[in-house]
Amino acid sequence: MQQVFTKAMARNIFLGGSVFFLAIYVALSIDTWHRIPERDHADKLTPAVLQGKYIFDTNNCIGCHTVNGEGAYFAPELGNVYKRRGPAFIKAWIQAQPTGIPGRRQMPNFHLTQKQLDDLVLYLQWLSNIDTNNWPPNIQG
């Protein structure tokens, strides 16, 4: 039987297509990289905010929560929690954990100092000002 579409042609589509779209992706990513600082107010990433972020990461917050929809679906969205609850509530809530109510989902107490709580809330505040193309649909996240 005559081979109209050969293996070599299939291979070339694979290699050519991959390289072509990878090149486009790299170009788009470079453009994105330049636009992100404006969209997330990177100029406001102060040392205190970054301290807060470090506390956030090293306590595995996304192991239960989401940030802009990414993480786990066991506990509420934190990308907009600053706007939903405000700084005072957030600090009091974290300090009051765990609730110990039987059957209710429990959050550990991370024994954060006052300074750490302040930094963490500053990070949550920074998160809440990212331009996420109007997501989430409402304040409940």
Partner: peptide
Amino acid sequence: AMTLISGIIGIGHHYYYTGAP
């Protein structure tokens, strides 16, 4: 070929609401 042709730019479906343009 179809995996990578669709999937490389298809990564964009993770970038809608996370702060990317």
